[in-house]
Design a binder for these strands. Structure first.
Length: 790
DNA sequence: TGCACTCATATTTTT
DNA sequence: TATGAGTGCA
């Protein structure tokens, strides 16, 4: 193990204060139930922990690590624990830390598959023809690179978009296929040139000393498969392996794990086949279903006691998921009080659904229905597809209900952040061609395609980087006029920033200078689009994020793998997110709108993957329902605007799968009764019979829920839902704005006030048209330049 | 080169 | 509907 001596992650050290641990004993074991304890104490040999939703799997997993350490089975750096997201990794680190207190400095090999692979690959980069300081490309860079190759291959980029090829290649990499291993059956991919371009792409990455996300795993697996000695080292080193969310592993990750686990064979995988919802990006449920075959003698422990949801919610979820075949099978149970039945309500259209949910949220916030008031933070709306969010955003903006959208473009994926990062990258290493390409003409410097081609040619014929190429081009007067002057400034700037980096100047200062001197900040200050202020805000935020790093290098290294941005502003807000984004989260109150066939289950899923697709959709339904702790409300709309066209659809088939005993139907009879269907033409017998059947089953019309619903809507007629809040805002609203005033809104941009009505303003937005908006969300339009980030 | 216009297109998303 | 990409013109 001499090779490991210089690496702090492997260095032998006295990691545990044995005294501290001895004094603590193992009190954590007492906090576990029998199954959890069994899973924690089965330290040796392969273990599969089947952990249903809300059964305390993170607790079991972290306690297991604590137990391994405190029993002296392993040192902290001999335990390999992998997760899928940084968030999960962070959470586990914190919890292990809490369990062990001062006794452990940290667990260096706890991280995402990708983060751990980066560490490994940096140590062995030369084996795959890379240098230790390789850069990691994100999806955007990947596509740009592929586009160049596609165009060079003379393929019509319109019919065969690079994005699609990126997807195909990702798929291959997920299956651990290097270009020479792609099976003949795939030869037809991407106009019969997929494999060929894949090969070129890998070559190009090598020259750029770069890898994409898929490569991180692919390269490491390749090294393990082709360098026995290297593999053997790690097999010996990692005494215990733990894997979270095993049902989400793809083939490459599976191979990686299996190779590493062949040493001590102490592998513990935690997962839930019922929560496998990432099949479309390469996850193989088969991995978890097959575990016992792969690891003979494996111990299987089922965690079935749920600590999250009420029995009704659990029963509804179980009812739905039981329609799936080929499950490992678990029966969740709970000690919690019965609670409320899962509520089901149908609406005329999507807007009304949004309106109803908005009102329902406000009433729950005030604490009606004999329940305690719920804070907005405890409520979430989970949708199948992100376009469903709009209806809610529009509605909530109108009624002034604070909300937060989770997911969507990540902070580090935003254009302005990526541009800024490219400047930072160039400051650190001017030879970074991809970064240079990104910003040569951002902001506009009069360097169009032609000028850029000249730079490329110059660089290529001299075998130097683009910055060097540009210098030669300028020196030889290959470029003249405005472009030449601007390019000169840019090149000088890059060299100056690089000098500052080498001189050890404060990285924050360098960052600010680079953004200012390059004209990038100014570019957004002069931009009149509604997004511009937000983008400047983001840039400020980025510079702030720099503060927690020693230098730019460290920051860039870190950021290429961390794509999440947890900024929780203090105010209480309702969360809106997709079902996928909700996995792993829980909320006391959950709304599940849009349960209509075609939308959920998604037509496209079913068309593309047939029964497999449908089953994955069903698991998504299961994930959705099991997010709820106390109140789950499922809803559907008879009509919905899809791509600007009204469409009618049937309620989701999953609704029929809900066990009637655990469902309370809130749908008012008048809403769907009689001639409704005939009149609209959209309501088929199927809908009505479903509703009526459900209603009859649950005795819907006489149910307490329905009565409450009625009385509540009557009450609402008399008093405004958020009167108290409006009163407060009224004052400021009236004094703050005048008709005709120019104002700004985060989402709609700039506009002029046309009318004022209490705290509601009618505003004619320049871009977004006429809207009625609550004054709270409006600020006076600042003239550009007022609010300068640096 | 940059702007305005037209046209096709349209899940889920982490690293 | 609304967004992005591509095309044509100044």
């Amino acid at each position: 193990m001499s090779d490991f001596a210089n690496d702090s992650d492997f260095r032998d050290r006295i990691p545990l204060s044995q005294q501290a641990l001895a004094a603590r004993g193992a009190p954590y074991l007492d906090e576990l139930n029998a199954a959890q304890r069994e899973a924690v104490e089965a330290l040796d040999g392969p273990v599969l922990m089947l952990a249903g939703a809300g059964t305390g799997k993170t607790k079991a997993l972290t306690t297991r690590i604590a137990h391994l350490l405190s029993t002296g089975r392993a040192r902290p750096n001999e335990i390999l624990s992998v997760t899928f997201t940084n968030k999960a990794a962070r959470e586990m680190k914190n919890r292990v830390g809490r369990l062990l207190g001062q006794a452990v400095e940290g667990v260096p090999w706890l991280g995402t598959f990708h983060a751990i692979c980066v560490k490994l690959l940096r140590r062995h980069a030369e084996l795959v023809g890379l240098k230790t300081n390789f850069t990691i490309l994100d999806t955007d860079d990947q596509v740009r690179l592929l586009k160049q190759l596609v165009v060079a291959a003379g393929i019509d980029e319109k019919r065969w978009p690079a994005r699609q090829l990126a997807h195909v290649i990702d798929g291959w990499k997920n299956r651990a296929w290097t270009p020479d291993k792609v099976p003949a059956g795939e030869a037809g991919a991407f106009n019969h040139q997929g494999i060929e371009i894949y090969e070129q792409y890998q070559e190009r990455l090598k020259t750029l000393n770069a890898v994409d996300f898929g490569d991180l795993l692919l390269h490491v697996v390749w090294i393990f498969q082709n360098h026995e000695d290297v593999l053997a080292q790690y097999q010996r080193w990692f005494k215990y392996i733990l894997v979270d969310e095993y049902q989400d592993t793809n083939v490459a990750q599976y191979l990686w794990l299996r190779l590493l686990a062949q040493g001590h064979k102490n592998i513990c995988c935690v997962g839930d086949d019922d929560q496998s919802i990432y099949g479309w990006r390469g996850a193989e449920v088969g991995n978890i279903l097959r575990f016992e075959k792969d690891f003979p003698g494996a111990k299987v422990v089922r965690l079935e006691q749920n600590y999250r949801s009420t029995p009704h919610i659990l029963a509804a979820a179980s009812g739905v998921i039981s329609a799936n075949e080929g499950r490992l099978g678990k029966t969740l149970f709970t000690d919690l009080d019965e609670g409320e039945k899962v509520r089901l309500i149908g609406h005329w259209d999507g807007d009304e659904e949004a309106r109803w949910i908005g009102e329902e949220i406000e009433s729950m916030q005030r604490g009606t229905r004999g329940l305690e008031p719920f804070s907005l933070d405890t409520m979430a709306i989970l949708v199948r597809a992100s376009h469903q969010m709009r209806a809610f955003e529009d509605r909530f903006l109108t009624i002034g209900l604070p909300y937060r959208v989770i997911g969507g473009p990540r902070f580090y994926e935003r254009m302005e952040i990526r541009d800024a990062m490219a400047y930072f990258r160039l400051a650190v290493s001017p030879e970074n061609d991809l970064a240079f390409e990104r910003i040569v003409n951002t902001p506009k410097r009069g360097l169009g395609d032609k000028a850029q081609q000249k730079i490329q040619m110059e660089a290529r014929s001299n075998g130097v980087s683009l910055v060097e190429g540009a210098k030669i081009l300028l020196a030889t007067k290959g470029l003249t006029g405005k472009g030449a002057i601007e390019l000169g400034k840019l090149v000088l700037g890059i060299e100056r920033w690089h000098g500052l980096v080498q001189a050890g100047v404060s990285h924050i200062e360098i960052a600010e200078q680079a953004l200012d001197e390059s004209g990038y900040t100014e570019h957004w200050q002069n931009d009149k689009t509604p997004e511009a202020p937000g983008r400047l805000e983001n840039l400020k935020e980025l510079v702030k994020a720099l503060e927690s790093f020693e230098n730019l290098q460290g920051f860039l290294e870190h950021v290429s793998l961390i794509m999440d941005n947890e900024s929780d502003e203090g105010e209480e807000k309702v969360s809106i997110m997709t079902l996928h984004a909700a996995k792993g989260l829980e909320f006391p109150v959950v709304f599940l709108p849009g349960w209509e066939d075609g939308l959920f289950p998604s037509q496209r899923s079913m068309d593309e993957s047939g029964l497999k697709g449908l089953e994955e959709e069903r698991r998504l339904a299961y994930v959705g329902i099991t997010r709820a702790e106390e109140v789950a409300t499922i809803s559907f709309a008879g009509n919905r605007m899809v791509y600007g066209q009204w469409q009618s659809q049937m309620p989701s088939r999953f609704i029929d799968e809900l066990p009637a005993d655990h469902v309370e139907v809130l749908t008012p009879p008048g809403l769907y009764g009689g001639g409704f269907g005939a009149a609209s033409g959209g309501m088929t017998g199927g809908i009505q019979s479903t509703i009526h059947q459900k209603a009859a089953e649950a005795d819907g019309y006489n149910s307490p829920g329905w009565k409450r619903l009625q009385s509540r809507s009557q009450k609402r007629g008399m008093s405004q839902p958020s009167e108290a809040r409006n009163m407060v805002i009224d004052m400021s609203a009236i004094s703050a704005f005048t008709v005709g005033e120019r104002v700004f809104h985060q989402k709609f941009g700039y506009g002029a006030v046309t009318a004022i009505e209490g705290d509601k303003l009618d505003i004619a937005f320049d871009k977004a048209g006429d809207k009625k908006v609550v004054a709270k969300f409006i600020t006076a339009a600042a003239s550009a330049g007022d609010d300068v980030p640096f």
